[in-house]
Amino acid sequence: MLTPGFADPVLHAQAAFRAVLDAMSRPGRVQLAGPGLAPPAPLMRASAAVLLSLADAATPVWHDAGADADAWLRFHAGAPVATTPRDAAFVLATGAPPTLAALDAGTEEEPERGATLLIQVEAIEEGTGLRLTGPGIEHEHRLLVRGLPDGFVAAWAANRALFPRGVDVILCAWDRLAALPRTVAIAEG
């Protein structure tokens, strides 16, 4: 049974957009998104809020979240569902995500067409864990991620080497999110 999306589509989408903007400009800093949202399982509030704010008829979405989430996203975001991860502008992984190299990294002419990968993880916490450096971080920022897929840090280095092409990642844990834009360098803690 289809449940409502944002109670106030304009204000709530703006709030989620702001959270993504802050997250992207300050890589690894945790933001809150999607309070009050009740998406069908296994969607988390933060990932659902990001897709409702950013995905639309012009951005194909690929996901592994099942039929309920599919109907909910199609209806509320109005986004077409991509048949493969490579065809998607937004990729949502609730389980093991596709490899970064399997996603659209954009072109040299239009690097902004690179996909955004949303990974639902168990928890994200600032202060310990991965060492992040790069634009938007003064010295170093640390982010602990529980449930990060194996081999992510090595795959990330290859993704970062594609710059200005590449994939951006948003880690979502319930109503918390943190972004890893393609510019950020990641070292294991």
Binding site: P4, P9, F75
Partner: peptide, 8 residues
């Protein structure tokens, strides 16, 4: 009725 998506 319950609104599912307000008029937009």
């Amino acid at each position: 009725h319950t609104p599912l998506r307000p008029a937009e």
